[in-house]
Each structure stands twice: as structure tokens, then as C-alpha cells.
């Protein structure tokens, strides 16, 4: 490879993950430019002149990531991840449909547009059921609906108090799990590591207090997670897997993955693997342009 590409990191704030990525790039003497999404102006009519060869998207806000990636990719600027991946992973229904399309096991899901239809959907799936906002993260606004009283109350609140997006009802079966789920990290075509997230609460996100422990990456887990990653467009993604009574189910795919609690737990240099992938993606993109 000739000279190292210049890597842009598009971010909103420098969290632990962004700092680790910046340190890894610096350690390898890769020219790096931080692009603060609060200061960014993208002129739609011409190719953005950011002075970088590839952009690593690390925005905290899904909407900013989505639209910035659309402009960058439309103008042929390579990004990790791509607009397609952000678009699919940022929306739970779009993710579900990709998983189903590609035969990746996922919890049974219903889509409805009115509180009445959502009640029917919940009762078809049976109590308890899970209501989730289409867009959202860190386990926020996810409801376990235990009975009809709870269903009516939650649906009325969403209908009256929520934005229009909260009136698109995404309902899933509740999957009884053994007090934990699995968060697996996929980079390219490899599951580089995984953790168990354990909690007494049914929501096991580490952002909500779930405790991390090492999870071995079996060939089966690797295969499942790589298939899920490919279904959403591939790249650098974190897969949430539920250990259901009838086998593992892919619950969600995250495209701006957080990994601060997983480096020591997995023993894997996750930022190192991500940077390897970014540099390889930049190299291939340059090759394609030549």
C-alpha cells in the first residue's frame, strides 16, 4: 500500500469509543481529521471537500448520521458504515424485514398503525409482548406489555403524547431469556468477539446497568452474526442475540457500536480491528477509483 489514507471521524462528542479510535489511528500514524457534526455544512450540489479519503461515522444522533452519510455516499465518498447500513439499522422495522428476507431468525414481529390494530397485534402474539419505538437506542421507551390494561394504557400514551413516529406500532413477541442476552461484534466477515449482558431486569443493555461477561464465539454464533451483518449491508456492527427456548434469535443490529465495556471482557482490541477494516475499505475504494 502506498501512503496511508486520511481518515475523517464524523462525531458529535468524543466518547470513550471515539477516543480509543483516535488513539489507535494516532498509534499507527494515520492522518486523521475530526469532523464535528455540529459545525458541518454539506453542500448538496457538489462533492464535499472534507480533505479525507474515508469517513468513519460516529455520530451520537441517528438523524445526523443518516443524512450526512447519504450526502457523502451519493458523492462517492467511502464511509464506515454506509448510508444503507445506517438507514436499515437505525429503524427496527427495516432491520426486521432484512433479517426475515435473508432467513436470519428473529423474534415474531407485528406492525400496526392504530392503537386498536396494535391491541389486536399484541393479543395475537400473546402477553407479555414488547412494544418498541422504531427509532431509539439504549433500551429507551421499550415496554413489556403484561396484560390488556397495560396495553391500552401504553398505546393511549403513545397515541396522545408521542410524535407521529410513535403511532407506528412495532410489536414483538417477548422472548424469555436466561437473565442475559448476547452482544456480538462483527467487523467485515468476522465476529471478532462477544459478551453476555446480564441483568435482573428484562432490559439487559449495559447502558441500563447490564453486566458484561465474556461469551465464546462459537462457529454457530459467528455464522448467525455474520449473516445478520450481511443482511443489513455489512461493515462494523454489533448484533444483539436472544437465547430463546427454540434457539438463538437476532434482536437488533447496531451500526455505531459502543464497545468500551467489551475490550477487557473479550480480550479483543476492538478499535484495532475497526481501524484495520477502515484502512482496508479505504484501500479498496481507492483501487476501485483508479
Amino acid at each position: 500500500m502506498s501512503s496511508a489514507p486520511t481518515v475523517g471521524i464524523l462525531l458529535s462528542r468524543v466518547r470513550v469509543e471515539e477516543k480509543l479510535l483516535l488513539e489507535e489511528l494516532d498509534r499507527r500514524s494515520v492522518p486523521t481529521k475530526v469532523i464535528d457534526d455540529r459545525e458541518l455544512v454539506l453542500e448538496a450540489e457538489r462533492k464535499p471537500d472534507l480533505g479525507v479519503d474515508i469517513v468513519v461515522e460516529r455520530c451520537i444522533q441517528h438523524s445526523r448520521a443518516l443524512y450526512a452519510l447519504n450526502v457523502l455516499n451519493t458523492w462517492g465518498i467511502p464511509t464506515v458504515n454506509t448510508f444503507e447500513v445506517a438507514d436499515i439499522c437505525g429503524n427496527k422495522l427495516l432491520t426486521t424485514m432484512r433479517l426475515i428476507r435473508d432467513g436470519v431468525p428473529t423474534p415474531r414481529t407485528r406492525l400496526a398503525f392504530t392503537p386498536e390494530a396494535a391491541t389486536t397485534a399484541i393479543e395475537e402474539l400473546g402477553y407479555p409482548a414488547v412494544l418498541k419505538p422504531l427509532v431509539g437506542s439504549w433500551g429507551r421507551l421499550i415496554s413489556k406489555v403484561n396484560d390488556r390494561d397495560a396495553a391500552e394504557s401504553i398505546l393511549e400514551h403513545k397515541d396522545v403524547l408521542g410524535t407521529y413516529m410513535h403511532s407506528i406500532y412495532y410489536v414483538q413477541e417477548y422472548v424469555p431469556k436466561p437473565g442475559r442476552d448476547i452482544r456480538a461484534f462483527v467487523v467485515g466477515d468476522e465476529t471478532i468477539g462477544a459478551i453476555y449482558r446480564s441483568s435482573d431486569h428484562w432490559i439487559t443493555n449495559t447502558a441500563r446497568g447490564g453486566k458484561a461477561a465474556r461469551c465464546p464465539v462459537t462457529p454457530e454464533l459467528n455464522d448467525l452474526c455474520v449473516r445478520a451483518a450481511r443482511a443489513v449491508g455489512g461493515g462494523v456492527v454489533a448484533i444483539d442475540v436472544l437465547e430463546g427456548p427454540e434457539g438463538p434469535l437476532v434482536n437488533e443490529v447496531n451500526y455505531t457500536m459502543e464497545f468500551r465495556n467489551s475490550i477487557d471482557t473479550t480480550g479483543v482490541n476492538i478499535p484495532g480491528k475497526v481501524v484495520d477494516f477502515v484502512l482496508e475499505t479505504a484501500r479498496k475504494a481507492k483501487q476501485d477509483q483508479e
Binding site: R13, Q61, H62, G136, S137, W138, T163, N254, E258
Partner: peptide
């Protein structure tokens, strides 16, 4: 003060 979390914040 850092900005408060908004609805579409996440990973």
C-alpha cells in the same frame, strides 16, 4: 454542560 440526550441518540 453537555447536551441532554435526545430521542434519536444511541449507537
Amino acid at each position: 454542560l453537555a447536551p441532554e440526550a435526545e430521542e434519536d441518540w444511541g449507537e
